[in-house]
């Protein structure tokens, strides 16, 4: 198992390196520069700024230098926010995004998985149709519709919750619900599918023939295998919640990574874009590794290799 993890970590590093290289090239190939602005800047001052950030060097050299820095955990200065480094920005906003993301994911699991199990067990009854139609609606509504809708209803009409900002626990509710509901819908459908597949297996009949009651059949015989599709989806779900946070953090004015990412891209803040891309990619790589480990733990027919 250790070998498996080491190997997968190594693979992950290579993936990250690739992502870093591609992003670097794409950023460099984008027209304009981080330092162009509406105000005219004297050419000699611009040259000085470019020299300060290393932009006077050839591309290859810049790549090597920045990669060396990143490997030491230093993502460089923000090209736009002159007095802050990328690392500082991440340190400030990462916890915000982690909080929003994990609460959303938790909400998605807590709502989606039980709904899926219930729907599978009570299939073709209203306990199946109701959650499944709701989840279909959830999947069809993009977050940029759901977000403002929730803000309108709970914030402006009912005046129960704040619609923007990030100051106390009540500020988490709407954005986390917006993000979470969408993925709850997916988890519900995947769990239902997985559980139905298990419940139709021959060995469920064997268990019934032994006199095992239905609830034991669900928990003991079917849950492990039935959850595998949902667990496999955790990796993509995390990726989705991260990219979803770009939208949601902007809608609800949350000072998280997503908002910084959007701003960095618009401002051509090269170092910040690179740093955040690598961070997001690393999170997805780690999540996928965790998912793989859990999968092997659940399914005795899989082996680490």
């Amino acid at each position: 198992m250790l070998k498996f993890i080491a190997l997968r970590l190594l693979q992950g590093m290579l993936v990250l390196l690739g992502i870093y290289a591609v992003t670097f090239v794409l950023v460099a190939a984008t027209p304009g520069s981080p330092f162009s602005s509406e105000r005219a800047i004297a050419p000699e001052i611009l040259a000085q700024i470019e020299a300060f950030y290393g932009y006077d060097k050839p591309l290859g050299e810049r790549f090597i230098t920045s990669l060396g820095n990143v490997l030491q955990g230093e993502f460089g200065p923000s090209a736009v926010y002159a007095n802050r480094t990328v690392t500082q920005i991440i340190a400030e906003s990462f916890p915000v995004s982690i909080k929003l993301g994990s609460i959303s994911l938790l909400l998605a699991l807590v709502l989606g998985v039980p709904a899926g199990i219930l729907a599978a067990v009570k299939r073709n009854t209203w306990l199946d149709y109701l959650p499944m139609s709701v989840s279909m609606a959830g999947i069809c509504l993009p977050t940029f519709v759901m977000g403002p809708l929730l803000a309108l209803v709970f914030g402006l009409i009912l005046k129960m919750l704040p619609v923007a900002g990030w100051y106390g626990p009540e500020y988490v509710v709407l954005p986390a619900t917006t993000l979470g509901l969408y993925y709850a819908a997916y988890f519900a459908r995947l769990t239902r599918g997985g559980m139905l597949e298990m419940l139709n297996q021959d060995w469920v009949r064997t268990a019934r023939a032994k006199g095992v009651p239905e609830h034991t059949i669900i928990w003991k015989h079917c849950l492990k295998g039935g959850l595998i599709p949902a667990i496999t989806f955790l990796g993509p779900a995390l990726a989705g919640i991260i990219s979803g946070s770009f939208v949601v953090e902007t809608i609800f004015q949350i000072p998280g990574l997503g908002q910084w990412f959007v701003r960095a891209a618009l401002n051509r803040d090269d170092f910040l874009v690179l740093g955040l891309t690598v961070l997001f990619a690393a999170m997805i790589v780690i999540m996928n590794l965790l998912v793989d480990i859990v999968q092997v733990a659940l399914n005795p027919r899989l082996k680490y290799d």
Binding site: Q201, D202, W203, T206, H221, K224, N299
Partner: peptide, 11 residues
């Protein structure tokens, strides 16, 4: 049952 390959729970 007829098919011993599917009649035992693999999990």
């Amino acid at each position: 049952f007829q098919d011993p390959m599917t009649s035992l729970n693999p999990y």
